Computed example of a mutant assay.
Amino acid sequence: MEDQEVKGVNYDPIADEYGTYEDYLDNQITATDMFYLEDVELARHLVELGLNKKPKKLASQGKNVEEFPLLQALKDREEAVRNGKLTTIIFIRDRNAKAQEVSGYIDYGHRHVLD
Rank of each mutant, 00 (worst) to 15 (best):
S60L: 13
E101K: 01
I90S: 03
Y24E: 03
G104K: 04
H45P: 05
A31D: 12
K54N: 07
A73N: 13
Y11E: 12
L86P: 10
D76V: 05
F35Y: 07
L86Q: 15
L46Y: 00
E48Q: 01
A31E: 11
L86T: 13
E38Q: 06
A15D: 08
Q61N: 10
M34P: 02
R44L: 01
A99F: 09
G62Y: 03
D16H: 06
K57N: 09
F91M: 07
K75W: 08
E78W: 08
P69C: 03
V40R: 03
L71N: 14
E79T: 12
E79A: 10
Y21M: 08
N10E: 15
A59I: 15
D26C: 05
P55A: 03
G62E: 07
N10R: 15
Q4K: 14
Y36P: 01
F68T: 12
D115Q: 11
F68H: 15
D94A: 15
D26R: 02
Q28R: 04
Q28H: 06
R77F: 04
E2Q: 10
E67F: 07
T88Y: 06
K53C: 00
N96D: 14
Y11S: 14
V102N: 00
A31K: 04
H45V: 07
P13M: 13
Y105T: 10
L86I: 07
T20M: 02
A97R: 14
V81D: 05
H45A: 12
G8F: 13
G19M: 02
D76L: 06
I14M: 08
G8E: 08
I89E: 11
I14S: 09
T88Q: 09
A99G: 05
R82F: 07
L49F: 02
G109H: 05
Q72M: 15
